[in-house]
Structures are given as structure tokens and as C-alpha cells.
Amino acid sequence: MRALVIDHAAPTHLAMAEVPDPVPGPDEALVRVEAVSLNYGEVADAARDGAPDGAVIGWDAAGVVVRPAADGSGPPEGARVTTLGHTGWAELRAVPASLTGTVPDGADPGAAATLPVAGLTALQVLRRLGQVVGRRIMVTGATGGVGRFAVQLAARAGAQVVAISRDPASEAALRALGADEVRTAAADVRGPVAGVVDNVGGPTLVDAFAALEAGGTLVNVGRTAEAASVLPTDALNAYGGRHDRSIRTFYLLGEPVPDFSGDLSWLAAEVASGRLDPGIVRRAPWTRHEEAARTLLDGRLRGKAVLDVE
């Protein structure tokens, strides 16, 4: 089969190649991939020589089950699915039922492919913030894949959403997604927030943490700033209503790996119905992967990049 593999001689460290078909385990379905989406972390890791030449990578992929799991778990043959794993940028992928969500018939596979990392991450992080109805929630990096989903889901849950984007031109789009306030920097936010979904790290994390009210939580998801988060000496002082604040790390595929099948299926239904915007801003055949990866690495992407597998 064909796949996108690591090639450190290529400009974006990705190239098309022939690789062996995957061999599913007893609890894994074989899926014919129709579309994949790119995430900053996996593309950046490839560019940093983080994987050997010839390795198939890719977290997000949507397609059709061509061989159900031998143990009877998961969706049947012919089911349309969205899947999460580590080797998705290929014509075929083997994936367990716990990382597979069903997609409504007729739904766009490209839209479904945006969900596994970005949609699940936004959903899981908001749950870590606890009850958000009527509370003020900050989302940094709000125009990115996770950020866009977090703005929408937080607004749907009844939060007052403060969206942070360094691009002033994104204000109208973020308000359309449900943001109540839009700022170009976390330091510009006036008044405390109850929780933060931080997709940026670096100085933005420091400023967002300073905005937390007592008992507030910041969950760091991404570090696109690629800079250190240096807290000032008084950042952890607990007086003046600043007590019990916390910074939490996040990893989607912890141990044991959670069963995300229900959440993926729900997200897919929300996107298919039009109640959730996948935010696809670049779409092309997967043979044009290089320009999509370069745009992502350059920080010029305000949403999701999708590649259709031909």
C-alpha cells in the first residue's frame, strides 16, 4: 500500500512510499482510509528527526471498515468510521474498537478526520475543568484545531468564552463559533477566568495563569510558542484571591488507553449535523502533503488541514 512516511531528506521530512499492509490484531479492524488531517505536533516532530526514515505516522484518519475485528468488537464491515492511532497516513490502517467512532452515512470523511486529536482533546480538557456553565473560560490559540473545537464546545456547555488569537482578523470568525470576547493576548484579558485551555505555552501560559481566579485550573495542551514558560517569583503567591490555582498537563493517549469510541461517534454526529464546525481551511489530495505541512509549520494555518487519500 501507499503511505506517507518519514523521509529526512525531503523538505518537510515526509514522502510518499510503498509499505507493507498492516496486519490487524484480534481486537483491531482494518480500515480503508479516505481522508486524514494534520496536527502541528506530529508534523513538527517529523521535522525534528523524531522518527526514523520509512516510519508511517499520522494520528487522524477516517474511512470505511473493510475487515471487522476478529474478536467481534467494533463496527461491522462497511461501516464509516473516524479513527485515532499512530499510523494513519496510509491507504489502510489497523485500529482497535476503543479508538474508532462511527460516522453517519453520507458524512464528509474529511470533516470526520479532523476529530480524533483536536475534537477529543478539546472535549477531554473541558471535562477536566469541571462545571463550566456560567463560568468564564479562556482558550488560547483559539484559531487552531483544538482551539476552535474548545471555543465551540465551551460555548455549547454554557461558558462565557474568552478566545485568544494573535490575529485580529479572526475576531468575527471566533465570535461566530461562540466566543463572547476575543483578545490578541492573554495579558490583555481584564478580570479573572475560572479555567484555561492553553494551546500555546511559553509566555502565554504565564499570562493566562495570572488571570486565573481562586480555585481555577489551567490545562496545557500545546506548546506552539516553542518557548519556555518562566513564572515570576510571585506567580504562586496565594494571597489576594489567588489560592488553590493549578496548572495541569495533558496527554490524550494515557495508560491504560481510554475507550474513546462513544466520544468519537458523538463528535462525528455533531459535525455531520452541522452543529459543530470542523474548521477545514486547507484541503488537497494527499500527494500535495508538502505544501500543507509547510503551511502548518509556518503558523499560517487558522484551522484544520485535510488530505484526501486517492
Rank of each mutant, 00 (worst) to 15 (best):
D259Q: 07
D234W: 05
E255V: 14
S261I: 07
Y239K: 14
D234G: 04
T249A: 15
P256R: 12
L253K: 10
P232G: 03
R245K: 06
G254L: 05
D263N: 12
H243L: 03
F260L: 14
S261L: 01
T233Q: 12
L236E: 08
S261G: 04
R245L: 08
F260G: 08
H243P: 03
H243D: 04
Y239N: 11
D244V: 01
P256N: 09
H243C: 06
G241F: 05
D234N: 06
A238W: 02
L236V: 04
S246D: 04
S261D: 04
G241Q: 10
F250S: 14
S246V: 03
G241H: 11
F260H: 08
G262D: 00
F260T: 03
G240M: 07
F250Y: 15
D263M: 10
S246H: 00
D234I: 01
T233C: 10
L236S: 04
N237S: 11
S265N: 05
R248H: 14
I247D: 03
F250P: 09
P258V: 09
R242M: 07
T233S: 05
Y251G: 15
T249G: 15
S261M: 00
P256W: 13
G262L: 01
L236F: 03
A238Q: 12
D234M: 04
L253S: 08
T249L: 15
R245N: 07
F260N: 08
Y239Q: 09
P232S: 00
S261R: 00
A238N: 11
P256M: 09
P256S: 10
R242N: 04
G240N: 09
N237E: 09
T233L: 02
A238R: 08
P256V: 02
L253C: 11
T233G: 12
F250G: 12
V257W: 13
Y251P: 10
D259S: 08
R248V: 14
R248W: 11
P258S: 09
G262F: 02
I247E: 06
R248S: 12
G240P: 07
Y239C: 12
H243N: 08
L253Y: 12
Y251N: 13
S265C: 13
I247F: 09
R248Q: 15
L236Q: 01
Y239M: 10
P232M: 03
F250D: 13
S261V: 02
D244S: 01
I247P: 00
A235F: 11
R245H: 00
Y239W: 12
E255D: 06
S246N: 08
P256Q: 13
L252C: 05
S246T: 10
L253I: 13
G241S: 02
R245I: 06
S265D: 10
V257T: 15
D244C: 00
P232I: 05
N237T: 12
F250H: 10
L264M: 06
D263P: 07
E255S: 15
E255W: 14
V257P: 11
G262R: 08
D244E: 10
G241M: 02
L264N: 03
F260E: 04
D263A: 14
A235N: 11
R248M: 15
H243K: 07
P256T: 12
F260P: 01
D259W: 02
S246E: 00
I247H: 05
E255Y: 14
S246F: 04
R248E: 11
G262Y: 02
G262H: 07
G241P: 09
D234L: 05
P256E: 01
S261N: 01
G241R: 03
N237M: 05
P232C: 04
L252I: 04
P256D: 00
L264I: 09
D259R: 11
